[in-house]
Design a protein around this nucleic acid. Structure first.
Lengths: 213, 213
DNA sequence: AAGTGTGAACCTCTTCACAGCA
DNA sequence: TGCTGTGAAGAGGTTCACACTT
């Protein structure tokens, strides 16, 4: 039974919202409330929650803490997953800073670059930076399974090959090229130029989109 | 006739590839070649090209330069579109640096922050930085129609409201919240945490995805 | 009465398959 | 012959609508 890409994304959003709500002390929530916060519909929320096999009660909705736990249980590896990042430009540093210590189950354990001036310093959030020729060694030692690519486009394929050779199973790629990878490696592409061009197009052609009705 | 979000994204990718090919001197291209480079199928490419109403010839394919021009014509505003960015953290600076001078038809003309130490300097690529209380004034003066939000989550909605009040028609939002906007404003959400969690999930559950077959 | 869980309808996007053309 | 353009079929994802529960 394949689980859709999009549903996983929404579950991640629900998790974030539920975390906030739990901190605020909210105990119960209805599908339409969560939908409203997440920018979707109540039916969609209930469908998504079917995936993780949780259940709510009519008139009371879902228990926030319980639901949060179910989603965490579904999305997270209980043993944690380790991430490495390649490319310490502005974007790479931004991501390291952002994720530092934020997700115990999903931590960036090492960063790599080719520039010697960036190496062997402990960068943002306590993760160490190595020369890229140590990539395989460190990935294996740490048991990392996820790679983030923030190098320029012309180096990205080579970096992807190195990551996969080192045992990486999933890649988050910010370089503007479509990576060629083995079919068992999952690639998520984040293309900022493409995103901006979409905004530009639909800003200019306001009647032509159908995203939300 | 609504034009799909996804198709626009792919056209943007084709444009980038065709630019490279044109520089290399390639004159003709088949749908299956372009598909291969873009990571899609030949049928998909031909469908997408139907949108812009260009046409190729059997046995010769498409003329690279002609096709490139058609796509540019379709995606770009001939008069250009101006972009402002709000939030000069690491990510904001990364984006400014990346886009500096890259797209004449889509240029970032100003950046805003609340931190006085970042203001009134010409930052990366010649775009000026102002205090956020000048946002409306500058957006109107420049005639900007697109906004990029790279502020923390708790400030993002307020920034979005300011941008829309100033006349912005499309927003590229990097803050991890779902913005509430008028239905005539297009929002593209880039959520790096969600993307990373998707990768983590599918790296751990390799059989469960269906993205590419 | 009000909200959940879910089969079925619906809609959108992708792929197939083939007629038509150079 | 080999590729384009496209109607039609197919998949996948979303929404509807309602039986069921408290």
């Amino acid at each position: 039974m394949p689980t859709s890409d999009k549903a996983i994304g929404r579950l991640s959003i629900y998790r974030r919202l539920l975390n906030e709500l739990a901190e605020k002390g909210k105990e119960n929530i209805f599908s339409h409330e969560l939908a409203n916060l997440a920018g979707t519909t109540a039916a969609q929320v209930r469908r998504d929650l079917m995936i993780i096999g949780t259940s709510g009660l009519p008139r009371q909705g879902y228990k926030v803490k319980e639901l949060l736990k179910s989603i965490e249980n579904f999305l997270d590896d209980p043993a944690g997953q380790k991430v490495v990042l390649v490319g310490l430009g502005n974007l790479g540093r931004a991501i390291l800073t952002y994720f530092a210590g934020r997700r115990p189950k999903l931590s960036i354990v090492a960063a790599f670059d080719i520039d010697p001036s960036k190496i062997n310093k402990t960068v943002h959030g306590g993760c160490s930076c190595y020369h890229i020729n140590q990539l395989k060694e460190i990935v294996k030692k740490e048991g990392a399974t996820i790679g983030i690519i923030t190098v320029p486009a012309d180096a990205a394929q080579e970096v992807a090959d190195m990551l996969i050779d080192a045992g990486i199973k999933g890649i988050l790629n910010f370089a503007p090229i479509s990576l060629r990878v083995r079919p068992d490696v999952y690639v998520e592409q984040v293309d900022i130029t493409v995103s901006l061009e979409k905004v530009a197009y639909f800003a200019r052609n306001p009647q032509k989109w159908s995203k939300g009705g």
